[in-house]
Design a binder for these strands. Structure first.
Length: 567
DNA sequence: GCATGAATAT
DNA sequence: AATATTCATG
């Protein structure tokens, strides 16, 4: 610990508000610099560090993206060069925005078009180099503002659902890491990014931290459509809602992968929805495999009498798990890809044909982990027909996905922090995948990310020891906190009102449609996979003989409707 | 250690 | 009912 840090920490190890870089309001703010301009990076790093920021630097957007994907690095703010040599600045921006990282787009030369695009894509600010020292100094306030906003939202949410107690008192009691209130932890936890990389959390922490899973409300990742509730606090989305669009992406990925290769991680990658997690995909996959998922629209209007889980009680864990199977869901597929899907499907055949007999041999990973990768279904079956645009057979046709229909809840990042003129919520109209709540993509967020001392009674200070300690930041230079000086020009101004002249304001408050609206237009045709399955299965399975003693389970799980009916 | 998927919780 | 989380498994 540096001398400086010691000064900021009292003898009890509690962060001393008065000495903290951020005035005791936030313990730390992690900034990632994405810029190939070495000089700029060095200067900025020094400057940032001099103001107490933790700095990570990478030279390319692609590198940053990979860091984000790994989700192991805590990042609150990104400063992204608009002209990354790999041309991925905007992709990175989208990813960062999707993860609710405050993203500042910076450029050497002002370009109105770039500015506009960046802001529309959710950039917090568009800035021309160099960044004013005074601005850098107060970047942390963006973070604080965001934290507070989420806190308000959370509080509002709690008021509106007294039946739910987020904090499982037992759990809290057991893990004395967190204070009773547990506010900050909860805030983080509600981000949608608790995902697989939680595996990287110390296993001890894992169990301590993973509890507290209250019922979460629903968020729509794909559409960013959140209803514009003036009463902002009300809708605090946490659960991913599988919208029609999101599901279409899912199905698209599924079809690209093909039977026997549908693994959550692979699907997740193909879907390329930054804020989605493997767990969520896995969950959805499970649902779809059981044919238990319905589009949101369907949910309201259609009841399924299907005796799905009639065999409830003593279902035992099967040692005959099948891996990588495709969901056989009623689904919708973009027009443009229709034909290809048809072909793929033709090649692949039905996914559950062998569930009774051969499945285990075919799909089981068995001893070889490569088996699954190599597997290609051995049969070719021509479907009798496809029901495309057949409203009689396809309920989906009756429910156009009106993804663009909803308004978006606006999570104004600044709330006037930078003054009123111009700087209104650059996030408005931003990319679709912006999670409504995940502020930080850091997957270890369940450990306290922010020891925000907003309320003395709630101070939950403990050292987030894993911060920045990961070794997974390939090619990333990590600059430790340390003192350094800067040559930046000084700008004196009121912190909260500071509006650097090179900031370009966002001006698209009414632009609420995400880019998916384009895609939506393509989702007019649908396949009726249920029906298709039926026809696939009817041609008679090559080895549809005698069920063995294990069948009951498969039948229950996978084959309780058409499949079993056809055998 | 890790991804997976069935089971189960919320 | 939909989604999240747990946990046995390989």
């Amino acid at each position: 610990m540096s001398e400086e840090e010691k000064l900021q920490t009292n003898t009890e190890g509690i962060y001393n508000p008065m000495g903290a870089p951020f005035y005791g309001m936030i313990e730390e703010v992690c900034v990632m610099l994405v810029d190939h301009d070495e000089k700029f990076v060095n200067e900025m790093t020094d400057l940032l560090k001099s103001y107490g920021y933790k700095v990570t630097t990478v030279d390319m957007a692609s590198t940053a993206m990979s860091v984000l994907s790994k989700g192991k690095t805590k990042i609150d703010v990104m400063i992204i060069n608009a002209n990354s040599p790999d041309q991925l600045s905007f992709q990175l921006l989208a990813q960062a925005v999707g993860l609710n990282i405050i993203s500042l787009f910076v450029c050497d030369e002002h370009n109105a078009l770039v500015a506009m695009n960046a802001l529309e894509d959710g950039a917090y600010l568009y800035l021309k180099k160099p960044l004013h020292e005074e601005f850098v100094k107060y970047i942390w306030q963006f973070v604080l503002r965001e934290i507070k906003r989420r806190e308000e939202v959370r509080d509002g949410l709690e008021e509106n659902r007294d039946q739910i107690n987020i904090g499982d008192t037992n759990d809290i009691g057991n893990n004395n890491i967190i204070g009773e209130k547990n506010i900050l932890i909860n805030i983080e936890e509600q981000s949608n990014n608790i995902h697989e990389t939680e595996n990287n959390v110390l296993s001890n922490e894992k169990y301590k931290l993973r509890k507290k899973r209250g019922r979460k409300s629903t968020k729509k990742i794909n559409e960013g459509e959140n209803l514009n509730c003036p009463n902002k606090a009300i809708k605090y989305n946490i659960c991913t809602e599988w919208t029609t669009d999101l599901h279409a992406k899912f199905m698209k990925a599924v079809h690209q992968l093909g039977e026997g290769r549908c693994f959550p991680l692979e699907i997740l990658k193909l879907m390329n929805v930054p804020s989605l997690t493997r767990m969520q995909v896995a969950s959805h996959l499970q649902k779809c495999r059981r044919n238990n998922w319905r589009a949101p629209d369907e949910q309201k209007s259609i009841r399924h009498p299907l005796g799905q889980g009639s065999s409830s009680g003593s279902r035992q864990r099967s040692s005959y798990r099948k891996f990588g199977t495709m969901p056989r869901l009623l689904t919708n597929i973009p027009n443009l890809q229709q034909q290809q899907y048809n072909r793929d499907q033709t090649r692949r055949g039905p996914e559950f044909l062998f569930s009774t007999i051969n499945t285990n041999n075919i799909f089981s990973r068995g001893g070889s982990s490569t088996q699954q990768q190599l597997y290609r279904p051995p049969i070719q079956i021509q479907p009798h027909y496809f029901n495309i645009n057949n409203s009689l057979n396809n309920p989906f046709l009756l429910t156009q996905n009106n993804a663009a229909g909803g308004l978006q809840e606006q999570h104004g990042p600044l709330f006037g922090m930078l003054g009123s003129q111009g700087l209104q919520d650059p996030i408005i109209g931003s990319s679709n995948y912006r999670s409504g709540l995940a502020f930080n993509c850091w997957d270890h967020h369940t450990q306290n990310l922010y020891n925000l001392d907003l309320n003395a009674a709630v101070v939950t200070t403990y050292s987030g020891s894993t911060i920045m300690s990961d070794t997974d930041i390939e090619n990333a230079t990590i600059h430790e906190l340390g003192a350094a000086n800067t040559n930046f020009q000084q700008y004196i101004g009121e912190p909260n009102m500071f509006v650097p002249s090179n900031i370009v304001a966002a001006s698209h408050a009414s632009d609420t449609e995400g880019c998916d609206s384009i895609e939506n237009e393509n989702y007019n045709a649908y396949l009726d996979f249920n029906n298709m399955d039926y026809h696939f299965q009817n041609p008679k399975p090559p080895s549809a003989n005698l069920p063995n003693e294990h069948d009951s389970e498969f039948d229950q799980v996978y084959s309780d409707d058409q499949v079993s009916a056809s055998i």
